[in-house]
Structure formats: C-alpha cells, structure tokens
Design a binder for these strands. Structure first.
Lengths: 340, 340
DNA sequence: ACTGGCACTCAGCAGAGGGGAGTGCCAGCA
DNA sequence: TGCTGGCACTCCCCTCTGCTGAGTGCCAGT
C-alpha cells in the first residue's frame, strides 16, 4: 500500500515543509528532489498519502502539509538520526566542562540545548529522591542555631538552618554527625530517611528533643518533593521563530512554560537513559499544545535516569537534527555528572 | 501654559488609552470623564498637548495616544500611587512567609510580582558582594576531599567541593575553620576576602600549600561575580497581553529576557530602598525596547538595597497600580529577609 | 504504471468605494 | 477672553470585486 516511493514523497514533503513553512505542491517537489517521476505521478501518491491521513490540504487548491500522523511515521521509520558535527560535539563538551557546580551544570545545559536546537529548552534538576547521600553535615553556627547540609551523589546541596532548644553540646553534635553519616551515606534518600528516623533514641534524654528536631528536618530535606519539581527553562526567544499565529502557537506554549507541573508532565517519566521520547502534536496530554512537539530523554550519571531534559518546538521542526542534539547533550551531561 | 484642565485631559487620555489600547478622541473623552467642557474645548487642549509633545496622533484623522513624554509627566506629577487592597496585602504577606529558604523566597517573590502586576517579573538574587559573611564552614568529606560552605547574611549558601594534597589533619581543619570565621564573620565579602588572603602563612609549612588552595577557593567564592548576575524571571505568559504586533513588542522583550546582562542593566543600579525607578520607552538603554517600560526598585533587609526587583511591560501600562505592587512586594521581601 | 494535458478550484492580492470617527477652524455667545 | 456648536475635510478601515496563479483531479495516451 505504501511503497518506497510514497514514503520518499512523504519524506520530501516533510523536509520541504519544515524548511519553507509552506504547503508543498507536486511540481515544487519534483523540482527540489530527484524523485525520477513526473508531478502527475507524485500527485497520485499524494492522494493516497492523504487518504491514509499522513498529509492534509489546508484548502482545496493548496499544496499538502504533513499531519501529526505523517510526522510520526517520519520519525519512526523514515529518519535516521543525523550525527552532530565534530565542532558541535567539541563545543558541547568544552562548554559543559567549564561548570563549577550543579547549578552551573544545569544552567549551561539548558543554554547549550536551546542554542543547538534553536528551540525552547527544558532541563529538570536531578531528582533528589532517586539519588544517594554523599555526605551529611551538622554544624553549630551559634548556640542553639545549627546548619544542616545535605550533599547528594549528583552534587546537589540542600541546606537548612534551624534553631533548637536546649542547645546541644559540641560533642553531642559531633556524635550525631558521625551517626547520621554512618546511617545515610551511600543510601538512597528515601532509605536514608527511614534509617535515620529513630536516631534520637540513642541520645541522652536531655538532648532527645533537640536531636529529634534535627532529624526531622533532615528527613524533611531527604524527602523534599518541592525540589523534585525544579526545572530550568531557556531559549524562550526562539519562540519568535515559532510561526505566524501568536494565539494558537506561542501563547499556549508561554503559558505551559509558566506551569512547572505541566512541564514535568511534558518531559514525562524519566525513561531509561537511551530512550528518546518524541511526542507530536495531539499526542501531547494538553489540547492547547496540539501545534507543538516535545523531544525529551532521561539523563544521569549511572545506569538509570535521574531526571529529564528536552525541548519544546512546533510540530513543524527538524526532528532528526533536534533528536541528535538532545541525545548528545544528555550524554555529555550524564558524563559530567559522573565525574564530579 | 499647562493649566489644570489640560493636565486632567492628559490624565484622562492616558487612562483611557491604557484600558482600551486605542487612540482616544475628544468626543469619547468627554463622555467617559466628567470634564465639564465640550469636545471642542478638549480638542483645543489636545492641540496644545500635542504641540508640547505629550500626546501624538498616529495619523491625521485619528484620536491621540500618549507619548513617552506624556507618560513621564503622568508618572511624575499626575499620579499618586494607589494603595493595594487589604486582601492583596494579606495575600502577599502570607504567600511570602511560606518560603523555606532563599531560593524559595526569590521564587515566590517573582511569582507574586508577576501575578499582581500581570507583567513580566524580574527578581535579582541578593547581591553576594554587598552582603556580609554569616558563617564559613570547612568539612572533611574524605581524606583530601573537603567541602567549603559559605553562608551570607541574606541566607544565601555557596558551596565548593575541592581536593587538596597532602590531606589535612582534622585538627588543622578545625584550626583553619576557627581562624576563617574569626576573620570573616560579619565582614562584607570583599573585605573578608582581603582579611583571609594571607592566612596560609600561619600554618605549618607542610600544610601551607593545601591551606592556600582552600583559602584561594574561598576567596573565589567571596568574589564570585557569576552569582551577582543571578536573576529569576516569571510571568512570561503575560507577554501574551502585550499587544498586537509581535515583532515590534514581544520579540525584543523575549530576547532581552534571555540575556541576563541586559536585564541587570534594565533593573539598574540598586537604588536606595525607597526609590522607585520608572523608565519609559526610549528612556531605556535599548533601542529595541522603546515600546516597553521598566518599573523597578531595590530591596534588602537593612538600610541599603542588596538587589533589585521589578517588572517589564508595555509603555502602555497601568503605572499607578504597577508601582504600588512593585513597592509593596519589595517591602515584604525586605521584611522576610530581615527575619531569617 | 507513468505521463502530458486540461478544466477547475480557490487563497491572496490589488483596487474601488463608502462609512465613520476624528480633526481643525470659525463665528457666535457669556 | 474662553467656551461652544457647527461644518468641511481627512483618511483609516472595512467590504466588495475581479483577477491571477499555484495547485489539484482526472483522463486519455503511451
């Protein structure tokens, strides 16, 4: 039913439409792509493709544009990811390596992604809940005033300042610190929270209330959901190239970008590291974004994805190039995170 | 030259134009505002206002729209800041008080500001260089691997993980920590950097190279300019209400929002706490933003402004309301920062 | 199975015309 | 002197019209 040439025609239509943003007609097609057949033949193929729902006509006497279904076929079967140039790879790697801390890594990543894809980039901070404890620190700032610092395997640092009364002796604090670290280091945050929970029992009754305040705060930091939602966005200016119609294509995206909850849903569940999520138009869980697509993937230093990153763009985008860029950036970030 | 009635006319024109976005004519003016005179009289006044450059005609037979100069006069002389409603004040205060750390304060602030003004909100993180040192912590994570934590008076926390060789003894680290805090606490960061610089000399020669690595890193953190540039943006979706023309009004703003350097310049130098900066259209240092205005002010817990916050919107905006909102938010944030 | 030819459709553009909002000016009136 | 009503004029904007040209579907021919 769909022979090779029809697929070629579909590919050609998508490529032309992506670059020109205009409906493409049979004549223009044969001129720009060496299909080896006449416009009339292409027209017949187009009629079939339209019947099957891969392309559509905006109005009777216009060229064709791809439908979501057409893009889907294109992404799944017609396209092989085109590798980045050596210069691009080098640029990514040197730029990301300059980062000094986790914040900086994420910031640079989002910047890089936006620049490479020329789309709106979204990077989720490495999930707290899925990473492990590297170190816990308890420090007395002033009598009764303590600083808790939690460092995770991804380099993320959470800190809390708390007041306890009665104040704790330095020796008690040192003891607490040692016990906390013994119980928590190397554990996943959720597990660490459980391990640590009843720690106060081991202390002198006089200190127990203070200690349990500290432990409770720490458990709170271990299981802080707020931080799982942290997200960074970049390249909003690329919306300018989104297309003509402001209300139907740009406004909904701007609104989605404001709602981090929506964005998290767009990025999707952290998938395995190698998997690439491409969701096109109506495949997205938001009706208003039916003119947009999302390309996302997981990243993380280990075997498993800790968080997601990706881009949002118009359905009419350069999928092969975008997919390649997103994948490359994800790989480099994962690598950087592994090193630190 | 400009009697009271002419000023009334100007005010009426601005109010109508801000709410309708359309050039306002003499007849509509007398209908909507009880000026007590006839359209013909208003026309005469308008002619004068136009001669003086406060209003302009888009084309011969259209109503008038305010010029930048007109808005300027309006802001300087014709308007008294209208206070927020009690409900609004309460909303701000309770929402901001829920914040758990500095990041959270800034995030909530930007959100609040965007919501109240319905414009794009910009909040600069409290300047590192202008705040003082609250605490410095040095912790051994593993032999030769140290964590430095710097806490500032604004609650900001900077941390660095560094490797030194040879590894330092716990006693040496404790000594170093004590000396660092003695020299740095309460100092402005820049001063602290100077105080601390030659600290390595006091240590055993064998440890000096490691100690000076640590000190150097800390001095780096003290004078990290990168962090002075940190900025948070919110309410981009409000751009949707900016106006008709995408290219001339929205695109330049989106581009400016990408460039944090530009934003810092827009917010301007931190002014005294009470001063309000309003820059209208061409008064802004960027030609492309001639259709936008910025309303900004400083904020900070003490007497002096530590950083700025504000909004960007179309020149055609509700200045009294916006100014009131920006001022109120700045006050509340300052207060919250003072408490923590 | 492909091609050239042909009639048909229809978005988009340009030009014409009318309506209407708004102006400037002038003469008259308090 | 300052305000007002009236009037002629300007010119944007909307609508209508007709045209053009790209693109299509179909058919007969190879």
């Amino acid at each position: 039913m769909l022979d090779d040439r029809k697929l070629d025609v579909l590919r050609a239509i998508i490529e032309d439409y992506v670059s020109t943003q205009e409906p493409v007609g049979s004549k223009a097609l044969v001129e720009r792509h060496r299909l080896g057949v006449s416009p009339a033949t292409v027209r017949n193929d187009m009629a079939v493709l339209e019947d099957e729902g891969f392309i559509a006509q905006p109005h009777t006497s216009a060229g064709r544009i791809p439908t979501d279904k057409g893009y889907r076929l294109f992404v799944d079967r017609l396209t092989s990811v085109k590798p980045l140039s050596a210069a691009e790879r080098r640029a990514i790697s040197t730029f990301l390596e300059g980062a000094v801390d986790l914040d900086d890594v994420v910031q640079r990543t989002v910047r890089m992604l936006a620049q490479l894809t020329r789309q709106v980039a979204i990077v989720q901070y490495p999930s707290l809940t899925r990473s492990t404890v590297r170190h816990v620190e308890v420090v007395t700032l002033a009598p009764g005033r303590l600083l808790l610092v939690l460092i995770t395997s991804t380099g993320r640092v959470e800190q809390r300042v708390i007041e306890v009364s009665p104040a704790l002796d330095d020796a008690v604090v040192a003891d607490l610190r040692a016990r906390l670290n013994a119980l928590a280091i190397g554990q996943r945050l959720a597990d660490a929270a459980v391990n640590v929970e009843s720690l106060a029992d081991a202390f002198d009754p006089a200190d127990q209330s203070s200690v349990s305040t500290i432990v409770a705060t720490l458990v709170g930091a271990f299981s802080d959901e707020r931080s799982d939602e942290r997200i960074l966005i970049g390249g909003t200016a690329n919306l300018a190239r989104f297309g003509e119609s402001f209300d139907t294509s740009i406004k909904p995206v701007l609104e989605a970008l404001e709602e981090h909850v929506v964005l998290l849903k767009l990025l999707g569940e952290a998938t395995s590291l190698s998997a690439m999520t491409v969701r096109i138009g109506h495949e997205l869980p938001f009706e208003e974004l039916s003119a947009s697509s999302v390309v996302a993937t997981g990243y993380g230093p280990g075997e498993e994805a800790l968080a997601n990153l990706g881009i949002v763009g118009p359905t009419r985008m350069d999928y092969p190039g975008t997919i390649a860029a997103v994948r490359a950036v994800a790989r480099y970030v994962s690598q950087i995170l592994g090193e630190s």
